[in-house]
Design a protein around this nucleic acid. Structure first.
Lengths: 113, 113
DNA sequence: TTGACATATTCCTATTAGGGAATATAATTC
DNA sequence: GAATTATATTCCCTAATAGGAATATGTCAA
């Protein structure tokens, strides 16, 4: 079985670094394709293809205005990714707390190394 | 240019759903490969291959004990993913706040629909 | 209609993946 | 050493890229 399609879900869609850049670029405000091309210095056909993938998984929305297509990030679509990563957040927080406590105990007892 | 290797970074490694399952399974405690095979009902060679990918990007750590290999999730390695997704968190929080406020205004004025 | 501009699609190609089956390696036990 | 258990690696195969170049589609203006 080959690798899952980039359009299969959000996790596969954001595997590509260019697409992640695009999403950040379109998070604050909608922008036409040409703006993305200029900002990320990527060939226009390449940008259009990435946008197609992002549209397929619902990570961006489009609006036409004359000949321009305004894209914007659908931030809510990133939530499944955030929620999944958050599963582990408490573990590393605990880990960091333990490291911190150990460091503080050492300081209190005047230990070095 | 083909797609980036699954071992190129955390984002590509977690694109596969099996690997995400494995990471969750190994988050609470370390487990031998056989345990993962039984829990996820995936062929053993397949599990070993996924673990290899996860090891390459630092998402899991291994420890040998006799003939068993105990793997555990390195939760801190998931942080780059969490941090990236968190960029968008404030945007959807604002969005949700706006939706909530609108709903409350409607309720106050006795509006329906 | 013609031309200019903005964006999308198609074609091509090298590379990668992931499952299954078979086999290899490593550690333990007898 | 031989058999057993646990895990890793290799081989085969098909499907899916992502970029580059060329081309198509769509919209507006004169």
């Amino acid at each position: 079985m080959p690798r899952a399609a980039t359009t299969s879900d959000v996790f596969n869609a954001i595997a590509d670094p260019r697409r992640r850049e695009i999403l950040v670029h379109l998070a604050l405000q909608e922008r036409p394709v040409g703006d993305i091309v200029a900002a990320l210095r990527v060939a226009q056909p390449s940008v259009s293809k990435h946008l197609k993938v992002l549209r397929h998984v619902g990570l961006v929305r489009v609006r036409r205005e004359g000949r321009q297509m305004f894209y914007r990030t659908n931030v809510l679509a990133i939530r499944p990714l955030f929620d999944w990563a958050a599963i582990f957040e408490r573990y590393w927080r605990h880990q960091l707390v333990r490291v911190k406590e150990r460091a503080e105990r050492k300081t209190e007892t005047g230990e070095s190394r």
